[in-house]
Design a protein around this nucleic acid. Sequence first.
RNA 1: GCUCCCAUCGUCUAGCCCGGCCUAGGACAUCGCCUUUUCACGGCGGUAACGCGGGUUCAAAUCCCGCUGGGAGUGCCA
Length: 479
Amino acid sequence: MSARVRFAPSPTGYLHIGGARTAIYNYLFAKANNGTLILRIEDTDLERSKREYEVLQVADLKWLGIEFDESPEKPGKYGPYRQSERTDIYLKYAQMLVDKGLAYYDFCTDAELEAMKERATQEGRPPHYDGKWKNEKYWEEAQAKLAAGEKGAIRFKASQKSYILNDRVRGRIVFPENMVGDFVLIRSNGQPVYNFCCVVDDMLMKITHVIRGEDHLSNTLRQMMLYEAFDATIPEMVHVSLLIGNDRQKLSKRHGATSVNLYREESYAPQALVNYLCLLGWSHPEEKDIFTLQEIAPVFNLDRFSKSPAIYDIEKLKWVNGQHLRKIDNEILVKQLDAFIDSGHWFHKQPHDWKIACIALFKEQIQFFQEIIPHLEALHSKELVRDEKLNEILSWPTTPQIAAFLSKELEQIKTHYVEAATFNQWMDKIKTELKIKGKPLFMGVRVSLTGHDHGPELNQLIPLTPVDVLKARVKNLLT
RNA sequence: GCUCCCAUCGUCUAGCCCGGCCUAGGACAUCGCCUUUUCACGGCGGUAACGCGGGUUCAAAUCCCGCUGGGAGUGCCA
């Protein structure tokens, strides 16, 4: 039987990086095993689920390079792929359990349940449902209520024995007896509940491996009971450790950017995010740390998951991003930059070759795509911002000499830009005629021409800077 | 509270299942040095970890127990 895996997000918000990570693992597993990847929308919480979030999440997934073999947009033969469209299926299966005597109708009110929980807690018992409507003496009443059209929830008779789960990453897990009370399958409003839908769908969609976050580990007990009730085999369970913040707490908004769309907006390379996320809790057999999904799909396997939670550290992401950015073709980068920079910006008026040269020059220096903006601004700024270090260089006796020389040379230039060859001639002349060399030479020229004490290599930078800007800077410095 | 899970450098991790080759390896970050001379990139090097306590064993990061710490769950949320 070929592998079938699914990613099952709830459309209640943007795609979270934790969700993206499990999607990646599922994708990789499917690819590695020539299997099928399914997208199932878990929108049984009508209150919080929104179609627009589903659209957004799918778009983010696509941006990350994750495509599905079966999904709401691309139905296979196990649809529908939105749980909200499968209600009658769940109802049917719930009724089957009722008929088999494995589940029952419950007509308790919220207040009743609340009181029940409170009582149990006070008495030091686990806050389980007390099984009132399971009791024979209420059967007739239940039938009557049902006949009268009253809405009741359907509860599963939780078996009170101990269960053993063989989890692919966590090994043998023993759930002791009496851990859960009778739980709801169908709400009194007729809507099914997560744990139930999940089992029915995984069963019907013939899912072979469930790869999901460790937060679902305890849900697995209930789900095992349901598989048992349906006389079905449990898929292979793969519970991956969670992502946490630098304070070791559950990852949340206060830890910074936790949703994928934010990274897209900040122009991170999607393959970098994917690469980094993949490495959080999984390791490459050869300990490689820069790769694409296509590259590692053949070697991806379930044996290399770490069991402990991983702290999400954006510093390493930045580095990974830089590594990927350097591999991207300059033409593509220019296109992205065009889209990234505001339409009114002078950058758009530059010739294509100039843009390419800029990208080539700066791509080695930036980790964030957006960090290129200050670099670009620096090319066009006539300003000379004096700080301590700059003033020190300006105080060197050689610097005014260099500036004066450059000023004269610049007057000779009739073109819009200085050629690299011309610039190199200047350097030679300063060396031979002015007899300046070493640090005073390079820093003197750099400061005179750029107004900064740092930046890319001069012979690449200067040919990209307009002559009038260079003139203004030198003049600025001489006065 | 109860239940389950987890525990190697600041961070991500390799090693653990099948004890010796581990004076614990790699990567990010950090520090220093080198590099047609700056920041960066690159190269070289440094600082830095087996949570604690007991066992078992000739030998333990690796196996067992306890403690401590952390995480998750405990819903008519997913």
